[in-house]
Computed example of a mutant assay.
Amino acid sequence: MEQKDYWDSVSEQKEFTTPFQAAEFKKYVREEAPVLDLGCGYGRTLDELYQTGYCNLIGMDFSEGMIARGRALYPYLDLRVKETDSIPLPDQSAEAVILFAVLTCIRENDKQRELIAEIGRVLKPGGVLYVNDFLLNSDDRNTDRYQRFQNKYGVYGVFELPEGAVCRHHDEAWIYQLLSDFFTLKYQRLIFTTMNGHESKGFYYIGRKSCQRP
């Protein structure tokens, strides 16, 4: 929530370009399934799903500006402002949750763990989690800023952008640990173009929640 002002200020300008792996998603999630896009931005991923036949879609984002833009672009989508850290949906109400470039906006390990636990709460047993995010890079530009901000934030990979956002690139071992409660269906490394036009290492992940009830 703390970066809300930044995302509101750029909500009409930023274009998100990292690709959604729709064909892989379709292998595991039926078109009638209740799907939540958490941190949906202006709704471009949900619109992609809508255009391919998905009909039970909800998008949530804490940026009122992003949601307003999405509602104007895609008035047929159910886009909602998320006002608290918790997800305002009942337990086991979603068959799939999409987390697209959201972890990069959360610098603290504990906050990331809390988010994944909350996603686990709203997912049905056997539900699918799709994650797309950024990995650590080894070029001089990135390693310099990782080192520069490590003391300030306590995590190697966290850095500030000149325009005010704080972002995080992830150690792959941390991603495996963070998602360890899910059964991995697909994991693939990719190269993404960031919202500011740079190349970055990244990944997409598809996992399944255990069918065993607690």
Rank of each mutant, 00 (worst) to 15 (best):
S86K: 14
P88I: 06
V102C: 07
T104K: 10
L99I: 15
T104G: 11
I106T: 02
V81K: 01
P88Y: 01
V97G: 00
A101R: 09
S93Y: 04
V97I: 10
D78S: 13
L77P: 06
D85I: 04
R71V: 03
Y74V: 01
I98L: 11
L79T: 05
S93A: 08
E108L: 14
C105G: 10
Q92H: 08
P75G: 07
Q92K: 11
L73F: 02
Y74C: 02
A72L: 07
E108S: 15
P75C: 06
Y76C: 11
A72D: 08
P88F: 00
G70F: 01
A101Q: 06
P90S: 08
I87F: 04
I87D: 04
E95Y: 07
E95H: 09
I87G: 02
V81H: 01
S86T: 15
A94H: 03
I98Y: 02
V97C: 02
D78L: 05
L73P: 08
A96L: 00
V97E: 01
E83H: 06
A68E: 09
A72Y: 00
L79G: 01
L103Q: 09
V97W: 02
A96V: 01
L79F: 05
I98T: 08
D78Q: 12
P88C: 05
V102H: 06
T104V: 14
L77Q: 03
I87M: 05
L99W: 09
T84R: 14
I106V: 07
A94I: 09
T84A: 14
E83Q: 14
K82L: 15
I106E: 03
N109K: 11
